[in-house]
Computed example of a mutant assay.
Amino acid sequence: MKSKILLETSKSVREPQGKKVTAKDVAERAGVSKWTVSRAFTDGASIAPDVKKTVREIAAEMGYTPNLLARSLSTRSTQLIALVVDELGNPNQLRTLDVTTRQLQAKGYSTLLLNISPEYSPATALRLADQFQVDGIIFLGTTLKHELIQFAQQVKHIPLVVILRNSGEADIPYVSTDGYAAGAEIADLFLAQGYSRIGYMAGPLSERTELRRLEGFRDRLKERGIDLATVMEAAHYRREEGMQALLRYMEATPRAGRLEAIFCENDILAIGAMDALVLSNAQNKIAIVGFDDIELANAPSYQLTTFRQPIEYLVGEAILRIVDPEMVGRPSLMAPGTLVIRASHRRTPW
């Protein structure tokens, strides 16, 4: 009988199902003002510890949670950061998204994911970010098309930063790996293997976004007296696109004149290129190097030599440029990466 009474008492403090409990309801039950309830859920607010404890206990019993959107009207901060992406088929962007959301959550921020696609235009996505009054916008390896650039230049009240790519715009800060230096280092690796017919596989072209990997690669080859033999283009950063790009090249090029080595703009294109070699019974006949060091790169069937970006560090620096008042407006950052040597940069002659 006693347990039944306790159960009924516990039920009686909750509001009827379907009715949202408000701060006013908690205040009436606790015998305090609505503003005292608000302070009990605001970090650093002036409130007696015992009052705070009592209010939070009653709120928990009633099923109350604070309305963050309402609070944002008074604090002028939504604690919401918009993340703009456009290539979720690229595993490295998924990894970067994971790292970014974890680091933001650790700082008390929530995220609004804006996945740009042919059906969902950049202008529509960024208008939504503005309407939600986000505290900042992070472009995660996103191709900065004209619409994005135009919007970014208009919303001066929202801090923004580009990560993993150079913005190409003086007033849009970026945090990225030094792609030019990385390209030069990969060229040196190929030259050390004695290769002379060397190519590059590029992803989607963008007038506004500069990775600088191709430039560094081509310039170092030229310094050593080697011309870049060809640049293949893939429409998207996807394995299938990398595979088809190399298959088309091999069908159009006699075996004797084919490339000895290819630097692919990222790992997923490189893995597609390696699959093309397997399909053509030409495994290991062309040296392949990628960029990003995704998890699949270390798989026994690939053992892809690649260039690792310091993702955790870059994300941390990007977030600081959004949420730390002392860091907002700081210059763009270019960080060094690490060449990861495995096996794919070596080839077996035809």
Rank of each mutant, 00 (worst) to 15 (best):
M1N: 04
K11R: 15
P16A: 10
V21R: 14
K24M: 14
A27G: 05
A30D: 02
S33I: 09
T36H: 09
S38V: 12
T42H: 06
D43R: 15
A45H: 01
V51P: 02
T54I: 05
T54D: 06
R56T: 03
E57W: 06
I58A: 01
E61N: 11
Y64I: 08
P66F: 13
L68E: 06
T78P: 00
G89C: 07
N92Q: 08
Q103N: 12
Q105K: 10
K107W: 11
T111R: 00
L113Y: 08
L113D: 03
T124W: 07
T124D: 12
A125C: 14
A125R: 09
L126G: 10
L126P: 04
L128K: 13
Q131T: 08
D135S: 02
L140Y: 11
K145M: 06
L148N: 15
A152N: 13
A152Y: 14
S167R: 09
A170V: 15
D171V: 14
Y174H: 14
V175D: 03
A181R: 13
A181Y: 09
A184K: 05
I186S: 07
S196F: 02
Y200F: 15
M201D: 02
M201V: 09
M201N: 05
A202I: 07
P204Y: 05
R208Y: 12
T209D: 03
R212F: 13
R213Q: 07
R213D: 02
K222L: 08
I226W: 03
T230A: 10
A234E: 01
A234P: 05
A234Q: 02
A235E: 14
E241W: 11
A252Q: 06
T253P: 00
A256L: 03
E265P: 01
N266D: 04
I268L: 00
I271F: 14
A276Y: 01
A276D: 00
L279V: 02
A282K: 10
I288D: 05
I288Y: 12
I288E: 04
I288K: 08
D292H: 10
D292M: 13
D293M: 04
N298P: 00
P300Q: 08
L304D: 13
T305E: 09
Q309K: 11
L314K: 07
G316N: 15
A318S: 12
A318T: 10
A318K: 09
I319C: 01
M327D: 12
S332R: 04
L339E: 05
L339V: 11
V340R: 07
I341S: 07
A343F: 03
W350F: 09
